[in-house]
């Protein structure tokens, strides 16, 4: 099994499954911090999916999208944490 096949048939479905589980936590999450962490995990998973797809399809331009997503999802989590700290 070649690397692109491995990525498209095994790695991406596993990441999709993880994203579904994180989404369940996002919907059910008993407290607000649980939901924030689930949202951060979804951002990280999206980053991993973009990176894997860039490798599978040999498109290095897509990696820039992953970098921007990494920087901005970090910023989003920081802003949520600040909001939580102010509220409590």
């Amino acid at each position: 099994m070649s690397l692109p096949d491995l990525i498209l048939l095994v790695a991406l479905p596993l990441l999709s499954l993880t994203m579904m589980l994180a989404f369940v936590r996002l919907v059910r999450g008993p407290s607000l911090p649980d939901r924030v962490i689930a949202l951060d995990l979804i951002g990280t998973l999206g980053m991993g999916m973009i990176a894997l797809y860039a490798i599978a399809r040999n498109q290095p331009a897509l990696l820039d999208v992953a970098i921007v997503l990494a920087l901005l999802s970090f910023l989003g989590t920081i802003a949520f944490a600040r909001y939580l700290e102010r509220r409590v």
Binding site: A61, D64, V68, L71, L75, I78, R82
Partner: peptide
């Protein structure tokens, strides 16, 4: 001549300053 541009670059720079402000 590739993916990117002034708009995206400006948004990333603004995000950097927003992080600094936080």
């Amino acid at each position: 001549n590739d993916a990117g541009g002034g708009f995206v670059g400006g948004l990333v720079a603004a995000a950097a300053f927003a992080l600094y402000a936080i």
